[in-house]
């Protein structure tokens, strides 16, 4: 197995004003790996994936080193990291609501085809993957359901030729049956060669699909390991409960 991780961050620290929201000495995702990030509300999950891209809707201070395939991303603005193949599907608003599905999927930038291990999904590829989007291709983003928006978000990221995909709670607000559908789609993308860091509050569903699990609490990693081992970790049960208390 290739020893160098696809995505690796060291000393990643994010602060809002004087508040340190995230302090992670190291986090890494290996080739064709699906890593799940779980934790209670406000644990810093979104802060982590946003921080990997240096992106935010607020204005935090981000420091630390982010490497994609051994290339230092830390100095690049978010759109350059996107071009390099680091893609984020954010929490909350993730599609252009004033544009049709088709326009959302039209290439916004010409992603370079040189990167190793990057698969470029054509418009037909993503329609095959999400037939629902094909049916709705002329609808505006604002007319889509929550699940359809998640599909569109993932599909738009795939169109940009991902090397590593960061997914922030793709199952949020979805019916239980849809949750497992979305997660299985993510799993199948990983099986077909993608590398994914997945934020998920629904631990029970997540643990079924991920390879490794990272447990965040107050901005720090308090446990991490293969899914099979983490299943029996008492702290996971705690976080799992925490997710439902909130």
């Amino acid at each position: 197995m290739n020893t160098r991780p696809v995505l690796e961050a060291t000393n990643l620290r994010v602060a809002y004003g004087g508040n340190i929201a995230l302090d992670v000495p190291r986090i890494a995702v290996r080739e064709r790996e699906l890593v799940g990030v779980v934790g209670a509300n406000g644990a810093g999950k979104s802060t982590l994936v946003n921080g990997l891209l240096g992106w935010s809707r607020g204005s935090p201070k981000v420091s630390g080193k982010v490497m994609l395939d051994g290339k230092d991303m830390s100095r690049l603005p978010p759109h350059e990291r996107v071009k390099a193949g680091l893609l984020l599907i954010p929490e909350g608003k993730l599609v252009f609501t004033q544009m049709s599905v088709e326009e959302n999927l039209a290439a916004s930038v010409n992603a370079p085809h040189d990167g190793q291990g990057r698969r470029h999904y054509s418009i037909d590829d993503v329609y095959t993957l999400f037939p629902r989007l094909y049916e709705r291709r002329h609808h505006l983003g604002s007319q889509l359901s929550g699940g359809e928006r998640q599909m569109l978000g993932i599909a738009r990221a795939l169109r940009l030729g991902p090397r590593a995909l960061l997914l922030d709670e793709p199952s949020i607000g979805l019916a239980p049956r849809l949750v497992s559908t979305v997660l299985e789609t993510v799993r199948s993308l990983v099986d077909s060669g993608l590398t994914v860091l997945l934020v998920e509050q629904n631990v029970r569903a997540a643990i079924e699909v991920v390879d490794r699990l990272v447990l965040l609490e107050r901005g720090r990693i308090i446990a991490e390991g293969p899914a099979s081992e983490m299943r029996d970790d008492p702290r996971i049960a705690e976080a799992y409960l925490g997710a439902h208390v909130a």
Partner: peptide, 18 residues
Amino acid sequence: RLARMVAEDPQLAQLAGV
């Protein structure tokens, strides 16, 4: 299209590589 993306949501446009 790029311009319209930025108009609607500059942050999201960044995530689309703009």
